[in-house]
Design a protein around this nucleic acid. Structure first.
Lengths: 138, 138
DNA sequence: GTTATTTTTGCAACAAGGTTGCAAATTTAT
DNA sequence: ATAAATTTGCAACCTTGTTGCAAAAATAAC
């Protein structure tokens, strides 16, 4: 995988401690993480607001992707193999285990072509499946 | 459509002013509504907390369905043709217009069979498509 | 490599969504 | 009609996310 510094450069974002750390943390995680979860993984803790601002910027630029799980919970992930803008995200399902609270992308499970009513235009999706993961489903 | 009072009875819920009004409001709306939008439609306004509590109870009983649009926005709808418990909800897409903010169920657009990885169990879904509705797509 | 400009950071403060505890009011059961 | 159970409204609180502003850090310019 690409170095955090290169990623920031490719996305035209300035290099800061906080930013490289966010990316490192997301790279090392197999799961989608919330702001709080990312913050807890910081070596020297940074401010909530700073984190929110960076996550927002990253999301807007397409460097990371935000998943809306429910009202009080949203998670962030680095798209698979992100390197540079505009060639990353493909729509897919997200899974949340209601027992262990794990959230992850199901890249294998492609979302079929979605047809909308006449005149509607699709821009983005947020597809979440709630259930039990293999660990919790016993 | 069924009377609000009958619905409450069928779902084993006590009859109160607030409860019948919530149901009336949802019945009269073609769109999914937020707590605030429901509250604004009340004749004699009721407390936020009361509304939240009832919406939660209704959701748990399966009388209404809650759609998670994004972090700060969740909407409520009466499933099509609800009459009594356990024979109402079918998974479907929800659409949010990012311009006029309308949210509605796309019942016509059935969600195909969703296959999860080995050992996973699906319990519920929350599928939202963001885009432009026919009114705003010009 | 210093200096000036721009961007980011952290802090205080705020708004909105949602929850909890508790006493008063309303419903339901007796 | 009365007692028991549920619901309501209020105050208070927590969490998520945002905004304004001065200090600090990063980038650009010299």
């Amino acid at each position: 995988m690409v170095e955090p510094e290169i990623l920031l450069k490719n996305f035209n974002l300035s290099q800061t401690q906080v930013r490289t750390e966010i990316i490192k943390i997301l790279m090392e995680s197999a799961l989608a993480l919330s702001m709080t979860e990312i913050r807890q993984r910081f070596q020297s803790p940074c401010d909530r607001v700073t984190l929110y601002r960076n996550l927002k910027t990253f999301t807007q630029r397409g460097l990371i992707h935000q998943i809306f799980i429910d009202n009080q919970d949203s998670k962030y992930v680095l798209p698979e193999n992100v390197v540079e803008p505009d060639k990353n995200y493909t729509e897919h399902l997200h899974f949340k285990c209601i027992r262990c609270n794990l959230v992850k992308c199901l890249h294998e499970m492609q979302v079929g072509a979605i047809s909308l009513p006449e005149g509607y235009k699709m821009l983005e999706t947020n597809f979440v499946v709630f259930g039990l993961c293999n660990e919790c489903n016993n």
